[in-house]
């Protein structure tokens, strides 16, 4: 392979593998900014993947090429509904956030495979979708010399959308009333309550947004990478998104950057053997790399103080 091909392959696989993480990790930062720790992102992704695949399998005849895009939306909506469990448990029922998140992670694959078996005559995995979220070129931008070929030809549009979503989310959190209030309930819920802000409402918003984006993330995984649903469709991507969010210091843009970095590590595991310098490194190092790097980064760069001050606690309004 020539340099150009290698570069454009690295970029496109990086983007393809980072897209699910980008959306999910941004979702995580909304939840945590509102004060709710969400280790259930993995489960949310599972549900998103499941629902979007089922939608695609049944509706691709009706909707044609647009099916996977609607599928992402369906994954998001079902993810939102699923995250409602976490919201009710942590916000109203005072459940420990980690326990509740773990329940999502236990429930999602069980429910996903149960329903798969129910719908597909006892089979533990679905068939493959006919209309995947394929790579394509971005008009105009792909015409730019060199850069266009590397970045915008045969690439993952949804990853670019994710990058835009991360910038929008950062702006939303920083410059709007909604963002200010959402952050205030995660930092000091009593203060927010004392100026008449509904802590419960904004915490629900945070969790449900994470459900929506996490569901989309899971759907992207299924619609563009695995192309079906089974028990191993989502294998740690939710946790990796959580790590990306922390790596990115709870900032949506930072989370996106970390997600792209993890996607890069994953892409090396796939195309590493074509790149002369690293071809000799055994594959499993690339598989392990994101997890190892997360630990190192956590230890070396991220202090405890970065998380929102009231993250992980339950607010109880006095009556």
């Amino acid at each position: 392979m020539d340099l150009m091909t290698i570069l454009s392959t690295v970029v496109s696989t990086t983007l393809i593998y980072s897209a699910p993480l980008i959306f999910t990790s941004i979702g995580g930062s909304f939840s945590e900014h509102s004060g709710i720790v969400n280790v259930g992102l993995e489960g949310i992704m599972v549900i998103g993947a499941f629902s979007s695949i089922v939608f695609s399998l049944f509706m691709s005849k009706t909707f044609g090429w647009i099916t996977p895009w609607i599928g992402l939306f369906v994954g998001g909506i079902i993810g939102t509904l699923f995250s409602l469990i976490h919201a009710v448990a942590t916000i109203n029922w005072r459940t420990d956030h980690i326990i509740s998140g773990t329940v999502l992670n236990l429930m999602a694959p069980a429910l996903g495979i149960y329903l798969t078996k129910l719908i597909f005559d006892g089979k533990g995995q679905t068939g493959f979708i006919s209309q995947p979220l394929a790579s394509s070129k971005i008009p105009f931008l792909s015409k730019i010399p060199i850069i266009g070929k590397i970045f915008f030809e045969n690439t993952s549009i949804v990853a670019y959308i994710g990058i835009l979503v991360s910038i929008f989310s950062w702006w939303l959190l920083k410059y709007t009333r909604f963002g200010l209030r959402l952050r205030s309930v995660g930092e000091h819920p009593e203060a927010a309550d004392s100026v008449g802000i509904s802590v419960y409402f904004y915490r629900y918003c945070g969790v449900l947004i994470s459900g929506f984006l996490g569901g989309i993330g899971g759907a992207i995984m299924a619609e563009s990478i695995t192309l079906n649903f089974s028990g191993t469709t989502i294998a740690g991507q939710g946790f990796m998104s959580l790590a990306a969010m922390i790596f990115g210091k709870w900032n949506p843009i930072g989370a996106m950057g970390a997600a792209v970095f993890f996607g890069f590590a994953q892409s090396l595991a796939i195309i590493g053997k074509y790149i002369p310098i690293i071809a000799k490194i055994p594959n499993y190092w690339f598989t392990i790399a994101p997890y190892l790097i997360t630990i190192i980064v956590l230890v070396a760069f991220v202090g405890k103080s970065q998380a929102p001050a009231a993250d992980g606690s339950t607010f109880v309004k006095s009556k």
Binding site: A191, V195, A309
Partner: peptide, 20 residues
Amino acid sequence: FMLVQNFTVLENIMLGIENT
């Protein structure tokens, strides 16, 4: 004090009745 530690003075004052 009911103040958000990592918000600015301005943000704390306007919180809840923000001009938008």
